[in-house]
């Protein structure tokens, strides 16, 4: 490590820890730190101060339906990882009166239906599961444009303003010109198409996002591919559709 190289990064550790370096500088600094013990020591020295910052904020309670929808996805993914045998066993053991969202079977079913192949554009809308008010839908995927993957949407109850979309095995995100591409969710009500959240998928094509809004009156949820940052209106026909009606 040359002295000149180190001088260039002399004040970078603080900015790095605060998240104030732009993406490219962050990557460059991380490469530099690998070979510079001074900067490594400085990062370690200042780290505790930065880690204390979130403790200064006013303590708020997250909404209860956030936990419910989050755990619905987590339990579904845990069941999928354990395999269909586990899902069947858990169904047998489950007390019938126990109120609980149980989208696991639905997700397994979604994967199965999609594996059969809804080939050539969209198939029919699929409500897979209705359990204790929670509804799980398999997304209809335009197989001409998204050649692999599956997706499902869990709506905790009729009045909920939050649903969770979970995707698996989608192809890598394409680039559009020089810009990165994200998936964007849309809430559809009659002729209105309202933007919701955006998400990206991991290297193995999995990901998830919350869909917020009045889901009780929405007709459908769409997913399109948009430039990073999202769009105000869809720039392409949906690559996924979930019919809620």
């Amino acid at each position: 490590m040359t002295g000149r190289d180190h001088d260039r990064y002399a004040d970078a550790p603080a900015a790095y820890l605060l998240g104030a370096l732009p993406e490219l500088e962050t990557r460059a600094f991380e490469r530099h730190v690998m070979g510079c013990s001074d900067c490594r020591d400085e990062v370690e020295r200042l780290r505790h101060a930065v880690e204390a910052l979130p403790r200064s904020v006013q303590s708020l309670n997250p909404p209860t339906d956030l936990k419910r929808s989050l755990l619905a996805v987590v339990e579904a993914e845990a069941d999928q990882a354990r395999g269909p045998g586990w899902v069947r066993a858990r169904r047998r053991l489950r007390a019938p009166s126990l109120p609980r969202i149980r989208p696991a079977v639905a997700l397994a079913g979604a994967a199965f239906l999609l594996a059969l192949g809804v080939g050539g554009g969209f198939g029919a809308a699929t409500l897979l599961q209705r359990d204790e008010g929670a509804r799980t839908f398999a997304a209809e995927i335009d197989k001409d444009r998204l050649t692999e993957g599956s997706a499902s949407l869990v709506v905790p109850d009729e009045r909920s303003e939050r649903a969770v979309l979970s995707v698996n095995g989608l192809p890598p995100m394409p680039a559009r010109g020089k810009a990165n591409v994200v998936y964007q969710l849309w809430l559809v009500r009659g002729n209105e198409v309202m933007p919701s959240s955006v998400f990206v998928v991991s290297a193995n094509g999995s990901g998830g996002a919350a869909v917020t809004g009045d889901l009780g009156t929405a007709d459908a949820v769409w997913v399109t591919r948009e430039r990073a940052g999202g769009a105000r209106a869809p720039t392409e026909p949906p690559v996924m559709r979930i019919d809620l009606s």
């Binding site: 979130p54 006013q58 997250p62």
Partner: peptide, 11 residues
């Protein structure tokens, strides 16, 4: 940790 996480995000 959900409370501190939500509080930080809100801030």
């Amino acid at each position: 940790h959900g409370g501190p996480a939500f509080s930080l995000a809100y801030r």
